[in-house]
Structures are given as C-alpha cells and as structure tokens.
C-alpha cells in the first residue's frame, strides 16, 4: 500500500485528475476516429460491392439471365454481415433479383428510386443504411445494398473495446507510477521530520539514515545540518551529535 504524504496530497490528486482528463480526451478522440473510420469504411465497402455487382453483371442483365444474376448476388451476401441484403432494380425500378426472405419489405417495394446513401428502417428487420450504384449509368437499373446498422454498431463497439482496454491499463499504470514518484520525492522530507523531532526530544540521532541525510547535498541535507546547528547552539553540551 502506497502512503501519500499530506504535503503532496493535492499534488497527487492533481496528477490523477490530469491523467484522467488526458485519458478521457484521448479515448474520446480515438473512439470518435474509430466510429468515423469504420462507418466510412463499411459504407465504402458496401459501395464497392454495389459497384462490383453493377459493373460485372452488365452482360448477364442484358441477356436477361436473372438466375445467374441471383447466383452472383447470393455469393456477395456473406460479405454484408449477418443481416445484409441486396436487391437489384431494372430501369423501370422493378425489383428483378433480391435476397429477402420471406418477402420484399413494403418500405422497399413501395419506395421511389433512391441513389447514394440513405437510411431506412425496415419493419421487423431493423435499421439499415442503403447504398446504391447505377448499372450502365442507370439505364440498366440499380444495385442496392442494405447494411444493418446494428452490425456496424457491433463492429464499432468491438473495435472500441479493443482500444478502451489499453487506454484504461495505461491510465492505471500512470497513476501507480505517479504515486511512487511522489512517494520517492517525499521520503527525504519524512526523514528530515523524524530527525528534527528526535533533536527536539533530545533523543539519540545516531542512526545510519540520519548520517545519510546529513551528507545529502540538496535542500533536505542543508536543512538537516541547519537543525543540527540549532540544536548545538541551544545546548552546546548535548552529546550524541557529531557536528558536520
């Protein structure tokens, strides 16, 4: 157990507070960066998948080979997490292939054509963001990718969890080290206090730690020697003091 000297109590509280503020600020900045980067990365990945489907299946669409098209989007589906969906609309905005079970959600079947990134809530399925990419500049239809926002949140939480632990451990180690350093700084003062009390009580001060204190070349040594001087001035016959 580390004992904190009264002299440095406020100092150590200040150090802990400072570390806390620094740690919290670091965590907020890091977690915000993770949230922003992973959200952006997920959306970019979705856009890339949509683009890949749109660009690589033009011939299949022009051949009206919907079973091969379905096979292709089925292969892409595992890339979208546990609850992702793909659907493809033709130039008339009619859905010609999709991965919904047991049916196409009404929010989608009745919606107007979309583009870019939008957010959707699908009844019974959750909250999604939807990424779209045109096929042949839109004249061949559009590819739509739905990513479950819960999946993204889980991904972000997982990444945050990975960051929070190192930050928390660093914070604790810093506090312990701070305490140790303050304690190290306070030790000569405590020795000086014990020496001064012994002189005042006219107790024996012939101890190895006092010898070490008296030969120190810092403020603690100067003060120890000054106390010794005052003790000898007050009582020149006092024994047990080896004037240095």
């Amino acid at each position: 157990m580390i004992k904190i000297t009264r002299l440095f109590q406020w100092t150590i509280f200040g150090v802990i507070g400072l570390f806390g503020v620094l740690g919290a600020a670091n965590a907020i900045v890091t977690l915000a960066a993770i949230d922003r980067d992973l959200t952006r990365e997920t959306r970019e990945n979705s856009q890339n998948i949509a683009k890949a489907i749109a660009d690589s299946n033009v011939d299949i669409l022009l051949n009206n080979d919907l079973s091969t098209l379905q096979s292709r989007i089925d292969q892409m589906l595992p890339l979208l997490g546990s609850n992702g969906y793909i659907y493809i609309t033709d130039e008339h905005n009619e859905i010609i292939a999709h991965t919904f079970v047991p049916n196409i959600p009404e929010e989608i079947s009745t919606s107007e054509p979309t583009g870019g990134i939008i957010e959707r809530t699908l009844k019974g399925k959750g909250d999604f963001f939807e990424v779209s990419h045109p096929i042949l500049a839109g004249v061949g239809g559009n590819v739509h990718i739905l990513i479950d926002q819960d999946d993204v949140s889980l991904l972000i939480q997982g990444a945050m969890g990975n960051q929070v632990w190192p930050l928390a451990i660093t914070f604790l180690v810093a506090i312990v080290l701070g305490l140790l350093l303050v304690n190290l700084a306070a030790r000569p003062i405590q020795q000086l206090l014990h020496y001064a009390v012994a002189l005042a009580k006219k107790e024996s001060v012939d101890k190895p730690q006092n010898d070490k204190l008296l030969v120190r070349k810092d403020e603690a040594g100067d003060l120890a020697r000054l106390y010794q001087y005052f003790a000898l001035v007050a009582d020149p016959n006092r024994s047990g003091i080896d004037a240095k």
Partner: peptide
C-alpha cells in the same frame, strides 16, 4: 426458393 433456381422460375 431464394436463390438462382427460384429466380429462374420467378423470371
């Protein structure tokens, strides 16, 4: 069936 077979028949 939500796959290529189902889509073929659907089409």
């Amino acid at each position: 069936q939500a796959d290529a077979y189902g889509r073929s028949g659907w089409a």
